[in-house]
Amino acid sequence: MKAFRIPSLFRVATVAAALAIGGVAAHAQPGPGHHGGPGMMEAGFGGHMGPMGHMGHMLDVVNATDAQRSQIEAIFKAAQQDLAGQRDTGRKLHEQMAALFAAPNIDAAAIESLRAQISAQHETASKRMSQAMIEAARVLTPEQRAKIAEVMKKHQARMAARHPG
Rank of each mutant, 00 (worst) to 15 (best):
P7S: 06
L9R: 09
L9S: 11
L9H: 10
F10N: 04
V12S: 11
A17Q: 08
G22E: 08
P30V: 03
G31T: 06
P32S: 10
G37W: 13
G39Q: 09
P51I: 14
M52F: 10
M52P: 05
H57F: 14
L59C: 02
D60W: 00
V61K: 08
V62T: 01
N63I: 07
N63Q: 15
Q71P: 03
Q71R: 14
I72M: 06
I72F: 09
A74L: 06
F76K: 05
A79C: 07
Q81K: 12
Q81T: 15
L83Q: 05
L83M: 09
A84K: 15
Q86F: 14
Q86D: 12
R87V: 10
R87Y: 12
L93Y: 11
L93C: 03
L93H: 07
A98C: 05
A99D: 04
L100N: 00
N105G: 09
I106V: 15
D107P: 03
A110W: 01
L114K: 00
A116D: 14
S119N: 11
A120H: 05
Q121C: 02
S126I: 09
R128V: 09
R128L: 03
M129R: 13
Q131E: 15
I134L: 12
I134R: 11
E135V: 04
E135G: 01
V139K: 03
V139H: 02
P142E: 01
E143D: 12
R145C: 05
A149H: 09
K153E: 08
H155R: 14
M159L: 09
A161T: 06
H163I: 11
